[in-house]
Design a protein around this nucleic acid. Structure first.
Lengths: 301, 301
DNA sequence: GCCCCTCGATCAGTTTATCTGATGATCCAT
DNA sequence: ATGGATCATCAGATAAACTGATCGAGGGGC
């Protein structure tokens, strides 16, 4: 019996013509995708891809299967859209807060999708730091917020959305090769540029560098610069003033700047968990679940 | 993210209007189906079924979701059919053996499906006992056979198709209630009617009743009757001459006879495993896999 | 020709999804 | 009330899917 997952993976493979990149697009590892394709071929009794050196090509049958697969996927997406509309899901006004280190990177991805899938939704956005968001949720000024977990607020429920790894952003002329896994201790604290105080991302980065950063965690510190937006931080890195820890989701966008490169960190890789927060007693849990699904799909796709 | 499985379960629920019967039709337990429907509702953000006392009704949204789900399922079935045809799967002549206690019950279910899905298949059937089938597979007279596992023949590979429980068939006026779980020892050996010697089903039934049957397993025995077809055995049970152990798949058909009723046995319930056997070196493994899928789908649906 | 590099396959171990069997809650009929 | 039917819930078992590591084939640089 085939599965929608197999069809999704096949669609990605058809699009990218490359197992590794298709897997990345599906947010899984290459073996996972290979296995699903293999299972699909087993159930169909036909090879759908031609594994040729240098390139991957769909077979004739595979191309038609992929085409039909797209139809199936589209029909199932339509089914979900329909049910969500008719169920009155995500209609009317919803006020949503987002932390500053997330908003400029996540919102452009999800707003078009929300617009399309939930045209009756009137979303009101606010970008502030976690503390303020939490207060506003408690007071009812906000319906929900997207921020880094955990919160530790008993009145507030959270639902995980996705994990967001931290990368080390360094000037492009940094001598270390792009595929080297950097140790925490290799980060030169004195050149570390971070957001100004009050941003959760700053605290998370400092916590990661805990060994060297002890004693600097509150109040002033000996670091070179502090900025009020990640974009500014990246400009400073690009200009050679230092390095920074940047979340993957931001790196995906900032990657365009040729003067910066990104290095992965050693396992266990640091990162943050982005989640959706709302009053424990909110009656709009179904809306939040649907919103969460959109975010998850957008981050993956 | 929804799955085809959820849509299949929903389709069954829409058809039967009853969780238990829908689950049975899908060959899963009722909680399994309930959970999938619940997950589906969670993803859609809408209730699709109205749980009303006495009856289960789809909601308006649910009805439309089910209708679209059918379309999705049909498209995915078409996709599979297409790939299998184009892949040259199950075309030409294939000689298939089936044991007598299975053929009259399974073949009517699968032949129409095979005919439709694989119109170019020229199936040649032979109904004989296991020993003969094994010999014919070895000699090449048969391509494959459906019989009870395990075989224990190193030259022959087998693939499990489905499990087939044994029920105790008794005359309708038997005093025991229909939902009672019967113990093996409660079976009156002297009234036990079985197929004649050489049928694997006979051996399996005797093995189950091992305690009382010791010493009777080969050669003549003290039992009332022996018949050469299950249908005859059932006639004898219906006429009050005794009782028999009958496989579920046969009971499903023979159930029409009002003079017989079927009792389940105590856990662990006895049964047989039906599988597909073929030469270990056969080049038609893909055909057999496809044939196996058809059988599994037919037994489930 | 030889080395290196890319890419997909494979494998072992782990995580996640799904299923079963038992039980509980609810409603209806007796 | 009591019993039967029906769906929900739960814990433990089973199966599916994924990850991270590794292997091996093919192609290009030198």
């Amino acid at each position: 019996m085939i599965t929608l997952r197999q069809l999704r993976y096949l669609a990605a493979l058809a699009k990218h013509g490359h197992f590794g990149r298709a897997a990345e697009a599906c947010n899984v590892t290459q073996p996972a995708l290979s296995m699903q394709i293999r299972d699909l071929e087993r159930t169909l009794g036909v090879k759908v891809v031609e594994r040729r050196p240098g390139e991957v090509m769909l077979t004739d049958v595979g191309r038609e299967v992929a085409r039909r697969g797209e139809d199936v996927l589209a029909a199932s997406r339509d089914l979900v859209d329909f049910a969500r509309h008719r169920g009155g899901l995500l209609t009317g006004r919803l006020t949503l807060g987002v932390i500053p280190s997330l908003a400029p990177y996540l919102l452009p991805r999800i707003l078009p999708v929300l617009q399309k899938q939930f045209p009756e939704l009137r979303l009101e956005l606010r970008e502030t730091q976690t503390k303020q968001l939490v207060d506003d949720i408690k007071s009812g000024a906000l319906d929900a917020a997207m921020l880094a977990l955990p919160l530790g607020e008993p009145e507030i429920d959270t639902a995980k959305l996705f994990d967001d790894l931290f990368l080390l952003a360094v000037p492009a002329d940094d001598p270390r090769p792009a595929d080297k896994r950097i140790k925490a201790l290799e980060i030169d604290q004195s050149r570390l540029i971070l957001l100004e105080d009050g941003h959760c991302l700053r605290d998370q980065a400092l916590a990661f560098c805990a060994t060297a950063a002890r004693g600097h965690q509150s109040g002033g510190n000996g670091m070179a610069f502090a900025a009020s937006s990640l974009s500014t931080v990246m400009q400073m890195v690009a200009s050679g003033y230092g390095v920074t820890l940047i979340p993957q989701i931001a790196a995906d966008v900032e990657q365009r700047d040729q003067r910066v490169k990104f290095l992965r960190l050693e396992n266990p890789q640091p990162g943050r968990t982005i989640g959706l927060a709302f009053r424990r007693t909110s009656p709009r849990k179904a809306d939040f679940a649907a919103l969460g699904d959109v975010v998850k799909d957008s981050v993956i796709g």
